Amino acid sequence: MATPQHQPHVVVVPYPGSGNINPALQLSRLLHRHGVFITFVVTEHNLRRAQQAAADTDSAVSSRDAFRIETIPDGLVDVDRDNQDYDLGLSKATTHRCAAPLRELVARLRGGATAGVPPVTCVLPTSLMSFALEVARELDVPSMVLWGGCAAALMGHMRLRELRERGYLPLKVI
Rank of each mutant, 00 (worst) to 15 (best):
L88I: 15
T114G: 01
L27G: 10
E44D: 13
G112H: 02
G112F: 06
Y15T: 05
T94Q: 11
F37V: 10
S62G: 09
M129C: 07
C122K: 00
A153S: 13
R166K: 13
L160I: 12
D87I: 11
D87K: 11
A99W: 00
S127D: 03
R137P: 07
H9L: 00
L105W: 05
A107Q: 14
K92Q: 11
P170T: 11
F37G: 02
S59Q: 15
G149N: 10
V120K: 00
E162I: 03
P170G: 04
V173G: 14
V36R: 00
A132W: 03
F37N: 00
Y86M: 15
R48S: 08
D58I: 09
D80C: 13
Q5C: 03
P125S: 05
D74G: 09
S62R: 13
F40D: 00
L133S: 04
A100T: 13
R159E: 11
G35P: 02
T114H: 09
R159I: 06
H6I: 03
V41L: 05
G111H: 06
R81K: 15
E134H: 12
S127V: 15
M144I: 08
G17R: 01
V41Q: 02
L88H: 15
L133R: 14
L76P: 09
G35T: 09
K172T: 15
V135K: 04
I21P: 01
K172E: 15
A107G: 10
L154H: 07
E44F: 07
P142T: 04
R29F: 02
T95E: 15
G111T: 01
N46G: 11
V61E: 06
V11W: 01
L105K: 08
C98N: 10
P23M: 14
T57G: 06
A53E: 08
G112S: 04
S28F: 01
E104C: 09
G148L: 03
P101M: 14
P4I: 11
G35F: 00
P14T: 13
N83G: 12
